[in-house]
Structures are given as C-alpha cells and as structure tokens.
C-alpha cells in the first residue's frame, strides 16, 4: 500500500484509540459516581446517606404487595437480599408480583421511600396461549 494511505490509516487508528480511552474514562466515572443503581445485595455492602437519591432494581417479592389507600408497600428482592419499599401513587400496569421493578427514591432507616416506581420487563415475548400450555 502506498505510504500516504498507510499513514492515514495509522492516523485513524491513533485518533480512535484516544477517543476510545477518553470515552471509557468518562463512562467509568459516570458509572461509579452518577448512576446510583443498586440491587438489594449491593445496597447491603454500602453506606448510603439518606439524602442521596438512588435507584434500586430487582424483583417484586411475591405476596409482599400491600395496599393501604394510595400507599403501596412491597419488597424488592434479588433472591439473596431484599429491601422494604413504600410508595404513594399509581404504579404502572406492568407492576406485578414476581416481575422486574425499578424504584427511585431515598433510603431512610432501612426502608426505601420511593418517589417513582417503574416496571421493568424482560426480553421475552410470547402470546398468552403459549404460557398456559407451558404451565400445564
């Protein structure tokens, strides 16, 4: 290959290498500082101040959902550790026991006071008739 073209390819690789490392540094710091997303187990190992808004993700423990007026309480679990959550407001349609959930709010004395509750669903798609077949 002719030397000018070779030099251009080296230039591209050089710039790419630099930008990759730059972006990874930014993302790494974002990941450790800004994205306060925890599972109940991770929460156990960390000291989190009660004025820090965090996200907790996990599954809704089956049988734990209790409603009192507009206040709803439930337990988020990752099947190793779990945390009690209370929330006042309307939960999304997909909020169900044994399904994924993400709660945003503050941790107060081991109880998570959520300001927002979001349903997380998985990548599985199937018609209801097939699920019934699987159950039998």
């Amino acid at each position: 290959m002719n030397p000018t073209r070779k030099r251009r390819i080296y230039n591209i690789l050089f710039v790419l290498l630099f930008s990759i490392s730059g972006i990874f540094m930014i993302l790494y710091s974002l990941n450790t500082n800004l994205d306060y997303f925890f599972t109940p187990s991770e929460l156990n190992n960390k000291e989190i101040s009660s004025n820090k808004r965090i996200k907790i993700g996990g599954m809704v423990l089956s049988g734990s959902v209790k409603r009192q007026g507009s206040v709803i309480s439930f337990v988020i679990t990752d099947y190793e550790n779990s945390i009690d959550v209370i929330y006042e407001g309307i939960v999304p349609d997909l909020f169900k026991e044994d399904s994924g959930v993400v709660a945003l709010g503050y941790l107060q004395n081991d109880i998570f006071e959520a300001e927002e509750v979001l349903a997380k669903h998985d990548e599985n798609y199937m018609p209801p008739s097939i699920e019934i077949k699987n159950d039998n």
Binding site: L94, Y125, P127, P128, I130
Partner: peptide, 12 residues
C-alpha cells in the same frame, strides 16, 4: 394478526 404479549398486552 398476532396475539398480544402475555405481560405487555397490546402495547408490545
């Protein structure tokens, strides 16, 4: 002409 999703319903 497809059935709805068993979790998401028609929004899927």
């Amino acid at each position: 002409f497809t059935q709805e999703d068993f979790v998401q319903g028609n929004s899927y």
